[in-house]
Design a protein around this nucleic acid. Structure first.
Lengths: 318, 318
DNA sequence: CTGAAAGCGCTAACAT
DNA sequence: ATGTTAGCGCTTTCAG
């Protein structure tokens, strides 16, 4: 690996000072240099195969143009499309996403955040947060920009982009009610996660609003979003009672586990889930998907930006 | 964001020189320093919340401890587990993976590789390569370490980790032959990709070896690994002839497209694919999976390491 | 519009 | 065993 061409090499070859070369190569500062010089420098840098040294720039400017993206597990299929979107958006503005996995372990999340900070990331996008999250607290304290995705933090100073869980659960319950279901069980998610808490709260709210049966033992709580927890929760519900006709699961993995478990007991759900799968496969779409508006609805919780806050401060002081 | 604690701060607080602090903090050089000094420096750095500045170290050492990982599309479900494995393995040795997507576009691959080089990655793992790949050629020329995964490059100097496609196809054909199939069609993958070329070659080889029908028009080539190409290829096969009883598809997405297309025409495959799916689902495993050894077999094509090559050179010259 | 100069934080000869 | 020294390649005041 031969020595890299540096700015100095380019400058010398173009007969200018390094600082001039630096400015010419930076679109933001190009206007400071005469067009002819810019052209010459561009040509020379092309010719010599000059490549910007990001580490040097990062050291000098204290900005890396990298964003840390922290997810529980990239192999969980809900994340790759999210990550892809993040990467593509960041790439457009010259930023790079650095992905890390936590396996939902707060200890790993913390050490990962530290590693990424050492790498100099300019900010974090966190998909792994719990409502009360030490790492978020620490990072926020450091003043490093954070946005959470998919899950909220309870920290009021952290922005987030999440689904409209209340509306989603409302639609699910409304749909089930319209099919005639009156006793609807709920396999709720972990309550330390915003998705668990929000969907459970929405379930209670809309169950009431729709005048459905409100027995406490129709609700059970999963300890994690896993298929095996879905199975366990179904068993638990069935031990308690047998008179519900539908189950709302807090997420897909719980639902998969629930369906497996029901199938093993010979309980068809819904209307025999194999028929359901068959029809879905043949049609290319679910027979139960109501034609509805805005299926991808998300909510953005925005916190005033740092700059805005600083200006507020300044005005207050001024 | 308050100013970071630097090595200098730690050194001053511990009453030693920066270089001493640097050595004490580096496990590899710790032994050079007296245990008491190490302890003191460790304590102080902890106390001050010192964080290693990776950009500065990278600039100084010209090694970033980052590896560029280039895949066609992280949202394609075959890649996340591969990436996860790469990330975990790299993390163990203090390295970081940086993921990039190419969408199978050689132009994007090239510009991505450049960006990652500017970021100073120490090497590349490429899952996106074609047999003849400009980017691989350029990178190899630069002398930057490369390994390809999932696909081979035709470049003899590049190591790769790939499936044993020949053995895989052999098992598929042997299995189909044992079920009585004699006219077996093949939806082959793109021949510019090693997976396409290798699986097609294996198909021809083992079809011959097993004494199966060898008509040319039983083979059709997909232009890409997509479901729609799978559909198109089935249509093409059916236009040509109707007397084959099985199809070997070069990958899963082609197979999905093929099955869709067959289903639309009312052709059951295999023995009615819905039955197949149903049974698979109920059992938790495919009824056609023969109990076989080593299901995850991969092949590693190793190229002598740079060091080894250098030593060879030296010996030859010496 | 361009040049000079300083220094980001770290590591690694080299010297003691 | 520790300190001295010299940059890595870049950006950015400050001068001219």
């Amino acid at each position: 690996m031969k020595r890299q061409t540096t700015l100095k090499d380019v400058a010398k070859a173009a007969g200018v000072h390094v600082s001039t070369a630096s400015r010419a190569l930076d679109p933001k500062n190009r206007h400071l240099i005469t067009p002819e010089a810019v052209q010459r420098i561009l040509d020379v840098s092309q010719q010599l195969g000059y490549r910007h040294n990001a580490a040097a720039a990062a050291l000098r400017t204290a900005r890396s143009r990298m964003i840390g993206v922290v997810v529980p597990d990239i192999a969980n299929p809900i994340f790759p499309p999210i990550i892809r979107g993040i990467e593509d958006s960041l790439a457009q503005i010259g930023y790079l996403a650095i992905i890390g996995n936590t396996d939902n372990d707060p200890v790993r999340e913390k050490s990962l955040a530290l590693k990424l900070q050492e790498r100099g990331v300019d900010g974090f996008i966190l998909a792994s947060v719990e409502l009360q999250d030490d790492t978020v607290a620490k990072l926020a304290e450091d003043g490093i920009p954070i946005v959470t995705v998919n899950r909220r933090s309870s920290n009021e100073n952290v922005s987030s982009v999440v689904h409209d869980d209340d509306e989603g659960i409302r639609r699910v319950l409304t749909h089930l009610a319209s099919l005639g279901h009156r006793r609807i069980a709920n396999i709720a998610g972990p309550q330390r996660l915003s998705t668990g808490a929000d969907r459970y709260a929405a379930f209670e709210r809309h169950r009431k609003a729709l005048g459905l049966a409100e027995e406490v033992d129709l609700v059970t709580f999963a300890k994690g979003y896993t298929e095996s927890e879905g199975e366990r929760c179904v068993e638990e519900l069935l031990v308690r009672r047998q008179d519900f006709s539908a189950i709302v699961c807090a997420n897909d993995r719980l639902a998969i586990g629930a369906i497996e478990s029901l199938a093993r007991r010979g309980i068809k759900c819904p209307q025999g889930h194999f028929d359901y799968r068959l029809q879905r496969y043949a049609d290319g779409r679910s027979p139960e998907t109501a034609p509805d508006d805005d299926p991808d609805r998300t909510i953005q919780h925005r916190v005033p930006s740092r700059r805005a806050v600083d200006e507020d401060d300044r005005q207050r002081r001024g």
